[in-house]
Design a protein around this nucleic acid. Structure first.
Length: 475
RNA sequence: GGCCCCGUCGUCUAGUGGUCCAGGACGUCAGGUUCUCAUCCUGAAGAUCAGGGGUUCGACUCCCCUCGGGGUCACCA
């Protein structure tokens, strides 16, 4: 495999959602699996849409996911600078080359005039083509008006690593703007120059660019550039399955998922498998497996719907796969306030008990609060329990007292607690559904909890008895 | 409207002419694992392969048409 140079080229207009991250991930995977480079480039030529702090936010997102780049605006690189607004001279140079070759000209119309042409085309339900209005003798370009590409419309066939063989007719090609009247290049012009100068070998981008591909092909020819390989990935669709995932429709910032306690392993796995698989029945992929097995050719051509349920399952899976030390290290910052009073060993033990039911770290407080504070006695837990509600309060009270007496002899290790609880089933003649439920409710006051012996073991003698006492008083 | 892309269980998908009355995963439902929740295991329901025509001994797979969805037609990217 030849080393590939790929790039991720976002505009600093806000945060990154899973759709944007997926494009970055695919580009990163292609670079890493081929031993090439992954480049971050900021396409910041639209000053009006630029959002303060977006660049830092994008960089943080990539860092968090571990999509490390070899060249970028903050770390530099041999083909820098990596912000388009810092590369203006390059675009001017190449614009001059096109002007000299007779392949670019000044746009003599006012925006209003162009708008009128557009509306005329719309009125007769025709696509708007600027070249139908191409001026005979355009003025010399003074940099104050848009500079347009003088296209040479023709049919194109080209290969796309994801979409396969594509084609489009000459009618898809037009005289698009290369340099805007504010002196900044358009995306259409700038990305092509940059990709050439930065030696990019694969352009991996979203579906919205497929319609402009013939224009780019025409421009590559005019510039006498060899074009890179193309890979067009379909959009990720929102939950409704129709529109592409977008910020407007509530697509979350990827960093929000990490703030909720999702694992990067799960996120990477999830995003990669949204529209890609290796042809086997494997669902879980590590980062290294993705690097090894990913291929653009196996990326789906149709858009995939974003299914948060699947993400949740996958995250739970990755949480369960972590050893306790690792899990504990990652849980930092997600503990409830009451947990601060307890030492690390205790918190670690609690975490071990809830690991298998934890879907994401933000659930830790609700899953663990009774380990850190006494909850008020809640009689509904008994009244709503289909086994316990059949008993008189006095019967439950005496049952709980028997349990209390036996547990008083325990050293509170898990084996001893287990033995005693089992023995208690014999002496009381009750089913676990009754006896264990009662003790569980009394000592946790929670609707659900880890298994009884382990819970008691972690809670400890003092807390367990305090709570049993409280429950006895309430019964 | 023109051009372009896409269309297999609710969702993500396997499938490149016969081994598919379509396989896996998520989700759902049922049962099991000496309490709850979850995990794990087992099982079930769930897709006339968008529809219609061809080609072929044979089509989810090839061709054509139709329908549906999406993208694009900016001095945004």
């Amino acid at each position: 495999m030849k080393p590939a140079r790929t790039r991720f080229a976002p505009s600093p207009t806000g945060y990154l959602h899973v759709g944007g991250i997926r494009t970055a991930l695919f580009a990163w995977l292609v670079a890493r699996q081929s031993g090439g480079q992954f480049v971050l480039r900021l396409e910041d030529t639209d000053r009006a849409r630029e959002v303060q702090g977006a660049e830092a936010h994008i960089i943080e997102s990539l860092r968090t996911l571990g999509l490390d780049y070899d060249e970028g605006p903050d770390i530099g690189g041999v083909y820098g600078p990596y912000r388009q607004t810092e590369r203006l001279a390059k675009y001017q140079e190449w614009a001059q080359v096109l002007i000299d070759a007779g392949r670019a000209y000044a746009d003599p119309y006012t925006p209003e005039e162009v708008q009128k042409f557009r509306e005329e085309a719309q009125a007769i339900q025709k696509p708007f083509l600027y070249r139908n209005h191409r001026p005979e003798n355009p003025p010399k370009w003074d940099g104050k008006t848009p500079l347009r590409f003088k296209s040479e419309p023709k049919d194109y066939r080209w290969h796309d690593a994801v979409m396969g063989d594509l084609h489009a007719g000459a009618e898809a090609i037009d005289d698009f703007v290369l340099i805007k009247s504010d002196g900044f290049p358009t995306y259409n012009f700038a990305h092509l120059i940059d990709d050439h100068e930065m030696q990019i070998s694969h352009i991996i981008r979203g579906q919205e660019f497929i319609a402009s591909q013939p224009n780019y092909l025409n421009l590559y020819e005019a510039l006498e550039f060899e074009h890179p390989a193309f890979a067009t990935v379909p959009h990720i669709l929102g939950p409704d399955g129709k529109k592409k995932l977008s910020k407007r429709d509530g697509a979350k910032d990827v960093l929000d998922y990490f703030r909720d306690g999702f694992l990067t392993e799960a996120m990477l796995n999830f995003i990669a498998s949204l529209g890609w698989n290796d042809g086997t029945e494997q669902e879980i992929f590590t980062r290294d497996e993705l690097i090894q097995k990913f291929s653009l050719e196996r990326v789906q051509r149709s858009g995939a719907r974003f299914d948060e349920n699947r993400l949740l399952w996958m995250n739970g899976h990755w949480i369960r796969s972590l050893n306790l030390d690792e899990l504990y290290a990652r849980s930092k910052g997600f503990w409830p306030k009451d947990a601060e009073k307890y030492d690390e060993d205790y918190r670690r033990a609690v975490l071990g008990l809830i690991q298998e039911r934890l879907k994401y770290f933000k659930e830790i407080p609700e899953l663990t609060d009774f380990f850190f504070k006494d909850l008020p006695v809640n009689m509904e837990l008994i009244d709503d329990n289909k086994q316990l509600k059949k008993f008189e309060r006095s019967e439950l009270k005496s049952l709980l007292k028997q349990a209390q007496a036996s547990l008083a002899q325990s050293d509170f290790t898990v084996p001893d607690l287990t033995d005693r609880l089992n023995a208690l089933l014999e002496t009381t003649g009750q089913k676990p559904g009754i006896l264990f439920s009662l003790v569980r409710v009394a000592t946790t006051q929670a609707p659900f909890s880890p298994s009884l012996a382990e819970t008691l073991n972690v809670l400890g003698r003092e807390t367990a008895f305090r709570r049993i006492e409280q429950a006895l008083n309430a019964l």
